[in-house]
Amino acid sequence: MSGPHGHSLHFHGHSPIHRLPPEVKIAAALTFVAAVVATPREAVWAFGLHLLALVVVIAVAQVPAGFLARRMVIEVPFVVLAVTMPFISTGPTRPLGPFEVSVAGLWAGWALFAKGSLGALTALALAATTEAPDVVRGLARLRLPAQIVLIMSFMIRYLDVVSTELRRMRIARESRGHAVRGIRAWPVLASTAGALFVRSYERGERVHLAMLSRGFQGRVDLGEGGSAGGRDWLAAALPLTGAAIAATAWLSGAGR
C-alpha cells in the first residue's frame, strides 16, 4: 500500500531492548513510571537519576535522541500548564527574576514537568522499541480483559484503512474545487466526518460478517506465541532502579 504506514512511533532496530518480549517491556515501563510518580518532588536529584537510567536504556536500544525529541512535542500543552502554575497558584510567594511567584505553584509546576516528561519519554521509548501489534500481544499476555485488547487491535489494524479513506475523500473534494477556508467550509467537513463514520460503521458490519463466516463465536486469542522466559525479566532492572531511587529519596527525608 502506498502512503505512510501507521507506525511512525516505531524505530526499526535489533537491539536487546527491541528483542525483549513485549509484555516484559510494558510491565517494566509501567512500573518505572509508577516509581517516578511516587518519587517526592523535592528530591530534585532523584529525577536526574531517573532520567539517567532511562537514557541508558534508550542508548542500549540505539534510538536516536532526535527521533524521541521530535515526538516529545506532544508534551508541550502540559509544559505550558506547568509554566503557568507558579503564576496562578496562591499562598506564600518568592521573587523569581522580575516576577513574584507562588512557592507552592513552583513546586507543582516542577513536579508536573519532571514526572510528565519522564512518563512521556518512557512511553515513547516503549513505542520506539515495540511494534504496535506486539504491544497488543503483550497486553493480551498480561491478561488485560480480552474485549479491550480486541478493541485496541482493531484500532491499530483499521487506522490506516480509515485514514486512507479520509485522504481519498479529501482529494475527491479538492478535485472538485473545494478549499478549506474558514467557517464556511465547516458544513462540508462535517458531512465528510459523517460519511466517514457511516462507512466505518458499515465496514465494521462487514468485518463482523467475515468473522462469523470463519466460525467466530465470541473469542479471539491475540496473545499466542511463546511467553517471556526467566532471563527476559532482567528488564526489571529499569523499574528496580527507579524504585530504588524513589525509596532513597523518601528515606533521605525529601518527602517530609
Binding site: A132, P133, V136, R137, S153, F154, I156, R157, Y158, V161, R203, R206, V207, L209, A210, M211, S213, R214, V220, L222
Partner: peptide
C-alpha cells in the same frame, strides 16, 4: 463453506 469476501480489508482484521 469457505467464503472469501470481496474487500480483503474486511476479511483480514488481526495484527499479523
Amino acid at each position: 463453506v469457505g467464503v472469501v469476501f470481496q474487500d480483503p480489508d474486511d476479511q483480514l482484521f488481526m495484527p499479523t
